[in-house]
């Protein structure tokens, strides 16, 4: 294992520039609150991996979506487990991202030079919510359907352009197959892609700026 990794890294060179970073002493005044971001990231990885597995069986079509989810739960080996992991990790991810945000806010770790990382974090937070919202529709059962009818319906309350917004979100006046495919694409392609890039930027800035000393 180590030898193979070293062989690759002699050519790839990811280790030497990170040596100082990885082996620096941890600041004295850290507490477990500083683990919240790391926990969120671990959950993000769990959501990503289990989601990539679910995509092998999930069928994003009006006619087959519900049945495919039933099949995952009842027939596919470990299907209920993988689906459960995806669901729980996703919910816990939202929770821990929020706790992490509270930590950063409470310790005023958003102050210069970390403003940009706060902004990046805000986008990540919104994307995490959006991921939860779009993912909720995918089982295509009654609960999912009506939750999305209500949720997207709020767009219509925006003054003047509300209806156009609604059509944009739903892909039509009603929640139907077009909405499902739209949400599917956002849920499995756009959000993971953009979130992963943002997280890379997030960690890059943590690395460059170091962790703030708390209050």
């Amino acid at each position: 294992m180590g030898r193979i990794y070293d062989w690759i890294d002699r050519r790839f060179g990811i280790k030497p520039p990170h040596k100082n970073f990885l082996q620096r002493p941890v600041p004295q005044n850290l507490s477990y609150f500083y683990c919240l971001g790391g926990i969120a990231f671990t959950l993000y990885l769990a959501v990503l991996l289990t989601g990539m597995l679910l995509s092998f069986y999930y069928v994003p079509s009006e006619k087959e979506a519900f049945q495919s989810v039933v099949r995952i739960t009842r027939e596919v080996h470990f299907g209920a487990l993988i689906r459960g992991l995806h669901k729980w990790s996703a919910n816990l991810l939202i929770l821990f991202v929020m706790l992490h945000t509270v930590r950063v806010f409470a310790q005023r770790a958003y102050r210069p030079p970390r403003e940009l990382n706060w902004v990046a974090g805000t986008f990540i937070l919104v994307l995490a919510f959006a991921s939860g919202f779009t993912g909720y529709l995918l089982p295509w059962d009654q609960k999912a359907y009506w939750a999305t009818v209500v949720g997207t319906g709020m767009a219509a309350t925006v003054p003047f352009i509300g209806n156009h917004l609604l059509y944009l979100v739903r892909g039509g006046p009603e929640v139907d197959g077009a909405t499902l495919v739209r949400f599917y694409s956002i849920h499995v392609i756009w959000i993971p892609l953009v979130t992963s890039l943002l997280l890379w930027a997030h960690f890059h800035m943590v690395k460059r700026q170091g962790i703030s000393g708390g209050l």
Binding site: L49, L53, F56, V76
Partner: peptide
């Protein structure tokens, strides 16, 4: 687990 998941049931 992933291999089992992917193998047809």
């Amino acid at each position: 687990t992933a291999a089992g998941f992917l193998y047809p049931s």
